[in-house]
Amino acid sequence: MNTATTIPVIAIDGPTASGKGTVSARIAKQLGWHMLDSGAIYRIAAFAVLKAGINPEDHAHALELIRKIKIRFEDDRAFLDEQDVTQEIRQEHVGNLASRLAPNAELRAALLELQRDFKRAPGLVADGRDMGTVVFPDATLKIYLEADVEARARRRYQQLVIQGKQTKLEAVLADLQSRDARDMEREVAPLRPAEDAQRIDSSELSIDETVDRILSCWEAVKQ
């Protein structure tokens, strides 16, 4: 028997600022599992393109670069080759570029196996937009974590204020609406719930309440 097929995966998909990253990290910690932040992988790829001075619209050169880079994570740190880029990849302009690069089919294919390599014992919590539909279609549990865009905008706005960044709630809302449109309307691996995903609306839930709901779902399916 291929032991990789017996390793459980909890796939958590959802739109930007739905809380899936924080929730996934807490669940992985509670279960003692590995975690895949697929958004960070795309952000690292975007940062690599910016660092190299490549025009993001020059898909051929961007793809050539992305196929050569080495991405790894240690604890909560992200590395591009040997450079710690944990802080750099969380900048808004990097996230926007990652969203613009994500629809590229060849880029997604180049990063697919890298993501699947994160599936290691005792288990994996995978956070992203196509974890349950494309990357881990055989995941033991699939969650689609959603929240209305106004609630997500307020969360993102508060995060930015805490980080000392000046912005307006209206601008954050417009940015999220734009990202949602790109993610949901792209031809390749669009953001959508897997057919067998359990949908959770976190608009009125705290992080702890959301974590508890997902862990309850896990307890039910692992029986």
Rank of each mutant, 00 (worst) to 15 (best):
M1R: 13
N2A: 00
A4M: 14
T5D: 11
T6S: 12
V9Q: 04
I10C: 09
P15K: 05
S18C: 14
G21K: 03
T22G: 09
A28Q: 03
A28V: 03
K29Q: 15
Q30L: 14
D37M: 11
G39V: 13
G39P: 10
I41T: 07
L50C: 07
G53N: 11
N55A: 13
N55H: 11
N55Q: 08
K68W: 01
I69S: 03
F73N: 11
A78N: 11
F79E: 12
D84F: 06
E88Y: 02
I89A: 01
G95M: 08
N96C: 04
L97P: 02
L97S: 06
R100Y: 06
N104D: 14
L111S: 03
D117I: 02
R120E: 03
P122S: 06
G123Y: 00
A126S: 00
A126N: 01
D127F: 12
R129W: 01
D130A: 06
G132W: 00
P137V: 07
L145R: 07
E146M: 13
E146D: 15
A147E: 07
R155A: 00
Q163P: 01
V172E: 07
L176K: 01
Q177A: 02
S178Q: 14
D180P: 04
A194D: 08
I200E: 09
I207G: 02
T210V: 06
S216F: 06
W218T: 00
A220Q: 04
V221R: 05
